[in-house]
Computed example of a mutant assay.
Amino acid sequence: MHGQAAVMRNGPLRLFHISDIHFGLEDTRALDWVKSCIETEKPDAIAITGDLTMRARHPEFRAACEWITALKVPVTVEVGNHDIPYFNLYQRFFAPYKRFKAIERLVETELDLPDLAIVPLRTTTRAQYQRFPWSNGWVTERALRHTLDAIDALPSGTRILIACHHPLTERRADGKLLTINGTRAMEALAGRKVMGVLSGHVHDAFDLTEQTAAGPLRMIGAGTLSKRIRSTPPSFNEIVVEGDQVRVTARNLAKVPTRAMQIDEVPENALPPREPREPVAPIATVPPVDPPVH
């Protein structure tokens, strides 16, 4: 599915990259601020990279859909692991996206801007035979092929950003398994000269370059707009694309500089760092206890 953004001017394109809103545990002050930024600044498009809800409950989805449909800007929405029903196993396996109905036209929608496409890549699955729990990513061959086909169908010279929920890093330096098939996905995307991969999931921002067999691939992560913080205050990414350059600013109410908001390694999950090896952003806004999970 495609969304045509109504942008007729030349010059840089400005995108807002939002992730991990987690309605049910949302930070209302942060959400009001972001909504005000959108209304005032009118970015060319918004990429929401998953985890709209905390537990995929109906009231959480209603709140998320109302907030998103009020945005008067082209939007693409990715599905996060928290957006697949936890308690209704029938819906999880047979109708996992039913609760997205109010915004289904935005879900996994390619956004076509002037000489730039934001192409979705699904990283969530209903189940994973390789491990439990099923919170981390898996790029299935079917999902990867769908994305690559969409890229290959674009006009020659189109700049490309990928939007997904999970960072594509497959393993951490200490060997912990993160996104299954992430290495192959990164190599395939690097081979197609993708400018960057936008993701969320870990609740801290990052801007890293992964080296693959097909060349480098830039990985850009957004923080959270929920009360479930990891080591940084709530934030979103402002992304400016000009020519072949991509500039990222991690905007936040605390006015912390971008570099102080970004971690240097992809962590295992969104929980606050408790072990010496776990990545921590320079600002180190680590909650003293793990945030609630309702």
Rank of each mutant, 00 (worst) to 15 (best):
H166N: 11
E187P: 00
T183Y: 02
E187S: 14
A213N: 11
F206R: 03
K193E: 15
C164D: 12
G196L: 04
K176Y: 03
G175W: 02
G221A: 10
V197N: 03
K193N: 15
T212Q: 10
L178W: 06
A185G: 03
L189H: 09
A214Y: 03
T212S: 10
L225Y: 06
E170T: 05
G182S: 08
L168T: 05
K176I: 07
S199N: 15
D204Q: 01
H201M: 02
I180Y: 09
P216V: 14
V202M: 11
R218I: 11
A214G: 06
G196C: 13
G191D: 08
G196I: 08
T169W: 05
V202K: 02
K176C: 03
A185T: 01
S226V: 13
T183A: 11
L177K: 07
R218D: 13
L189N: 04
A190F: 08
R171F: 14
G191I: 10
K176M: 05
M195S: 14
H203P: 00
A205L: 05
M186F: 03
D204V: 00
G223T: 09
A190S: 15
R192H: 04
M219I: 05
H201R: 03
V197Q: 01
A188M: 14
G182W: 11
L217R: 13
G191F: 10
L168M: 11
L168A: 12
R218W: 14
M195Y: 13
S226G: 10
S199W: 01
L168R: 06
L168V: 11
A185W: 08
G223H: 07
T212W: 11
H203E: 00
T212P: 08
S199C: 15
Q211A: 15
R172K: 10
P167E: 07
H203G: 00
N181D: 14
T212R: 11
M219F: 04
L198M: 08
D204M: 00
